[in-house]
Write a protein that binds this DNA or RNA. Sequence first.
DNA 1: TGGACTTCTGCCGACTTCCC
DNA 2: GGGAAGTCGGCAGAAGTCCA
Length: 286
Amino acid sequence: NLYCPAQTTRRVEFFAARGALDIESVGGIVADKLVERGLVKEPLDLFELKIEPVAKLNLGTEEAPRVFGEKNATKAMNAIERARTLPLSRWLYALAIPDVGKTTATQLTRFHDTIQDVADSQLLRDILEYHQRREHKESAKEIAERLIKSGFAKPSKSKAGKDGIVTEVGPAVAQSVLDFFASATGRKILRRMKELGIEPKSEKVSAKKAAALPLAEKTFVLTGTLPLMTREEATEKIEALGGHVTGSVSKKTDYVLAGAEPGSKFDKAKEMGVKIIDEAGFRKML
DNA sequence: TGGACTTCTGCCGACTTCCC
DNA sequence: GGGAAGTCGGCAGAAGTCCA
C-alpha cells in the first residue's frame, strides 16, 4: 500500500539504511518527520528533496522544536546524490522486495544487467515453470538445460530424474520478485526511476572470470569489530576477490575473520575447528 | 528431516550533531 | 561544555527457504 504513512515511513527508513542506499543521517525519526511534513510520500521522493527545507525540518514538536540542521542536511543530500550511482544489487535490496536480502540481490545481479532485466527475467520465469512441471511429473529437461547453460543452475546429484537441477534462487524467491515488479507498486517504481534518470547497472562478472578469482569458493564469516576497516568494507573486499560472506559458522566455513570482542561465532569456529584469522592476517591474504 | 544459509527483528554501546 | 536526540555498527536469535 503506497499510501499508508506508517508503511511509507518504514519503506523510506529501509531504503536509506546502511545496507541499502546508505543515505547518511536518515534514520527512523528523520524518515518519520519527512513523511509527516509531506516532504516525502514515497522513497524515490528523496531524490527530489532540496537542502533548505530538509535543514529546517523540525524533528521535535510544535511546542519544543528541534531542527535537523545544516550539517545533517548536507550530509544527507550528498549521500542521496551518491546513491544514484550505486550498483544494481544495492538498489534491488533497497526496494524491499519480500525474500530478497543482500545475498539474493547480489545473486540476481550476476545474471541481469539492469533493473528492467530483473523485472522481465526469463530466468526467473524458467525457474517457476521448471518447478511446476516437476510437480506435475512432466518433463522439464529443456528448461533445465537452458538454466544450466545460463549458469543460473547446476545439475543436482540428489534430485531424482535426468533433469534434476539446483538453481541460484528457489521458486518462492522467483515468484516474489516477478510479483513485485508486476504489481502497481513495482511498475510505478520502474517508471519513476526512469523519470529521475536513475539506471543502476549490474557489477556482474562472468562465471569463468569469477572462478579464477583468488578467493573463489571460499566462505567467510565476520565477527567482532575490526580495528581498521568496517565489516562492510571487509565484505566488499572478500566479494571483489570472489569470496562469499555468510552470517553463521558451519563446517563449510573456510575462515572466520575475528575482530575485537567477537561474539558466539568465534566460539563456534573454535569448536568446529574452522580457521580463525585477524585483520592483519586478512590483509596479508588480500 | 537435519543442516546450511538468509532474512528479519530487537537490543546495545559508541559516536555525532544540535541546542541551550 | 554538557545533555538530548538520533544514527551507526555490531551482536544474538527466531523463522523461513532450500538442499542433500
